[in-house]
Amino acid sequence: MSGLRVSGLRAEYGAARVLHGVDLEVGEAEIAVLTGPNGAGKTTLLRALSGLVRARGTVTLDGVRLLGRRPEEIARLGVWHVTQEGGTFAPLTVRENLRVGARSGRHFAADLEWLFGYFPVLQAHLSQPAGTLSGGEQRLLAIGRALLARPRLLLLDEPLRGLAPRAEGVLFQAIHAINRHEGTMMIIVEHHVATALRIAHRSYVVESGKIADLRTRWRW
């Protein structure tokens, strides 16, 4: 029963129905990519999974139901959602940001070292308030926080947006490494399809609030 199973997911914003019955699956240690036009409901789908938006249907992670729980409870069940806008605490230092939500203190120093291997820029600004970093650096910080948390399921909403090309590569190396070593499941919403598909096991196309297409599974 492991993995994420979503069946008949429906969600509204006020009166407007945005998700019309989404079915998808992410298997153990798999990375799924969501693509599709703007406004198709990809972001809403992630929000429904992390509890930011109320939704109906069935969602289970390793057999545990997720729908109806508060976001913090879902996060504690192992789901980590990096949104498009935020993911960092501006007044806290980079180090403090990385500390919040990271797995237990014993591993922290080693985990930091590992992370700096991929994102040295974070080490350079360790004592600075996160709000003073550039947009791209803050994105790396947000994802760095997610990686340090070692979640069961990682939801990334357009992680590459606004990043310099070199950073793109490094980011995906880090994501791929976590997936290989920890077996972290992932759902990545991304417009840079080519890059994303290089590490994906499945890809879903979302259109008008429904899954329009499921590409064949790849095995790595």
Binding site: W80, T83, G87, F89, A90, V100, R145
Partner: peptide, 21 residues
């Protein structure tokens, strides 16, 4: 104190980090 400062800074991100806001 760290957790409290995080909540004060951005309650939504704090929730997504598993903090019982």
């Amino acid at each position: 104190g760290l957790v409290m400062r995080a909540v004060a800074a951005d309650p939504r991100t704090a929730r997504l980090s598993g903090i019982r806001v």
